[in-house]
Amino acid sequence: MTIFYSNAIRGFYPAAMRADYEQAGTWAADAVEVTPEDEAMLREAITAGAAIRKKSGGKWAITAPPPPPFAVLAAPILASARQARDAILKSAVGSVVGNVVGGITSKYGGVVSEMKDKIGGGISGAIGSAADKFK
């Protein structure tokens, strides 16, 4: 089966359907006949995202695809660093809060217990009630 390739479309056209493509106005102006070997090579290049051009003399020039942008390469590394940072911060904040609450509890145990009981009814009521104890 004869196959044509269009570099502008980056697609293949079977010769048997040329009349249908032309009638529909979709036959590529740059379509050239390719061998089965060239078709396989071009399909592989298209899949890899390589640049394709036809050189003088009928040979194909295929260049490697451009490297991915830095942001794409850095994303997994940055995500891992953010996870580590967040875990460290969460751990540090947890121990600081635990120490602060522990110190407050030992000094103002009754007031803290009362605040914990009232938080179920709303934090503003608990804070107002606790603030009244210090007046």
Rank of each mutant, 00 (worst) to 15 (best):
S124W: 12
A28H: 04
A64G: 09
E39K: 06
S129Y: 15
D30Y: 03
S6I: 02
G103A: 07
Y21C: 05
P68L: 11
F4E: 01
V93Y: 04
A29Q: 13
R43Y: 06
M41P: 04
G109Q: 05
L73D: 10
R85I: 09
A84Y: 10
L73T: 13
S106R: 11
F70H: 09
A74Y: 06
L78D: 12
A8F: 08
F4W: 07
G103Q: 06
R85A: 12
F4P: 03
A31V: 07
A50N: 00
D117S: 11
M1Y: 06
D20L: 11
K107H: 12
A126W: 09
Y5W: 09
R85D: 12
A131M: 15
G128Y: 10
S106L: 07
P67E: 09
P65R: 15
S124M: 13
I62R: 05
A31I: 08
G122W: 10
G128T: 15
D38F: 02
T47N: 03
S106V: 09
D117I: 07
L73Q: 12
S6K: 08
A31H: 01
S6N: 00
I127V: 15
V111L: 01
V111T: 08
G11E: 01
G57T: 02
R18L: 13
Y5C: 08
M1R: 09
I104L: 15
M17E: 14
I119E: 14
L42P: 07
I77D: 09
D30P: 01
A87G: 05
M1A: 11
L42D: 00
T47W: 00
I119A: 15
